[in-house]
Design a protein around this nucleic acid. Structure first.
Lengths: 104, 104
DNA sequence: TTTATATATGAAAATATTATCATATATTTG
DNA sequence: CAAATATATGATAATATTTTCATATATAAA
């Protein structure tokens, strides 16, 4: 089938999913968490709080949110819960943006 | 200098910029606009409205916003204003997400 | 110069996200 | 078991984003 130049199929559902992932990542603190986790196997909530100099509850909310959205996974060990990247793929996003010359 | 495993330098300003670009793109309608523009040299506001079945003023807001943030550029011709991608690089973001298996 | 058309603007309303705080829960240790 | 510690939870407040609507502006055409 010859596709009409004017007719680009926009898959609404796909775009919504994409936007959803992007939104999850589009926050300085959450990007920072992703970077931290990229450099270690896993980190406890408190370790992340310390490194980012950020309040426990706020970090917890972010972590749970990112886990819920499929970007992180976690594992409990004693008192601690260790979070890690579930999808290393998200790191590509960060590389993309860094290479993106959107001049601001 | 030997870098400490524990000490990953998080560049706050850089992350804020990255989050800013990501936020700009993290919206279904705006992703759709980017896709449309990727497939044509440029499109007028009305053309975009029609294709996305979306109200003029809303699209206009989105377009102006994306232009302001360095993702689009525009050119006026008579009554129309034609928008186009300023940075083809942003398309990589979309490819990244599509390849990202964040399971949701 | 009136009329029609395309786009922009700006305020207000609707909605979503993020941060804060107080406290709950779970686990470990003494 | 009581105390200490790590994390989670949930309500609320603070902010930010998105949508809507009414209208302004600019250009073209009759």
């Amino acid at each position: 089938m010859i596709s009409d130049i004017q007719t680009i199929q926009i898959n609404k559902e796909k775009l919504e999913k994409a936007a959803f992932i992007l939104k999850t990542v589009a926050h300085p603190t959450r990007l920072a968490i992703i970077q931290l986790l990229d450099h270690s196997v896993s980190l406890s909530v408190n370790e992340i709080c310390d490194r980012l100099d950020c309040e426990q509850s706020l970090i917890s909310h972010h972590l749970i949110n990112m886990k819920l959205r499929g970007i992180l996974k976690s594992q409990k060990n004693g008192l601690n819960r260790y979070y890690s990247l579930k999808e290393k793929d998200v790191l590509n996003l960060i590389v993309c943006i860094e290479n993106c010359n959107c001049n601001m």
